[in-house]
Design a protein around this nucleic acid. Structure first.
Lengths: 159, 159
DNA sequence: TATTGTTATACTCTATAACTATA
DNA sequence: TATAGTTATAGAGTATAACAATA
């Protein structure tokens, strides 16, 4: 961190040191996530899904009948941002917005048959891609990491 | 994943299950990263820095004289996107763009005294915030996670 | 020809305010 | 009055093409 005088340092740097950043977990989380997301995007390409549309579809298939506001909360995104995602899934006939008789403001989101089929295929493809990505990691290491990530995630709602 | 018929399911969901997504590491990486980044932003607020300007400043302080293209490569961002970041740090007199006599196309990025001082304070603040964020995690767990994240990161350059 | 830094541009993700129709 | 979904909009972050100056 402490250097005597920048002017006395030769103006050519051979290899860039990330010494200070290395102790900074957020930096590694961002970079590793970028790699995982790029891999994921490749896996989802055949299904024309992105990470966000994939997550939405999976949650609708697992929780048929949920409301848009519930889905937004589960995905940790704002309601306005969910609208275009639901629009896209509905336009592709993967889900339906069904009117809820007991509350005429709300929509119940349900998957279509095509939606459930595409979802099953996409889930299988994502699992395969993650297995390949994490293939030579120590057994249990990924599970430990996910457990820690979930604890960090829980910290967000605390404060 | 498999449900008999969406029409037969009551259209009210009490609590949203993320069962299928739970085995999907990228999902947890994204959500945990959001928490860490929000925490980081709070830590950097007094210094008027964001994660990206903080990373750039730290790398320039640790590697005085590096070129913009080297910095972009180290930060894993495209050269055009670095320009505004360097502009901002230079406008705030935290760094200088020095002409390189041996290559008149390039600039050597060097920190100013103010830049090095702000950087030292910001690094201390970030360390403190991460220590607090990870305070009651098992000893070594964060280090193990970072080690795994670095291995995942390395996967990105492989393929 | 290739590279450095730059401009312009576009696309995604995210965040907020304000509207409508209901409750 | 509050809530569900919506619209409009603005800000980050990111990606590509193309340019001038220089190698």
């Amino acid at each position: 961190m402490a250097r005597p005088d920048p002017k006395s340092v030769p103006p050519v740097v051979e290899s860039v040191s990330d010494e200070t950043l290395r102790s900074f977990a957020g930096y590694h989380m961002k970079r590793a996530f970028n790699v995982v997301q790029a891999d994921l995007l490749r896996a989802l390409k055949p299904f024309n899904l992105r990470m966000i549309t994939y997550s939405a579809l999976v949650l609708i298939v697992d929780n048929p009948g949920l409301r848009q506001s519930q889905l937004a909360a589960a995905m940790d995104i704002e309601r306005p941002n969910l609208v275009v995602i639901v629009d896209e899934l509905e336009r592709r006939d993967l889900i339906l917005r069904e009117k809820v008789p007991t509350d005429r403001r709300a929509y119940a989101l349900v998957p279509t048959l095509a939606g459930r089929q595409l979802c099953a295929q996409a889930v299988a493809a994502v699992r395969k891609h993650e297995e390949r990505l994490f293939a030579d990691m120590a057994p249990g290491a990924v599970e430990d990491m996910v457990a820690l990530l979930r604890r960090i995630q829980a910290r967000g709602s605390e404060e």
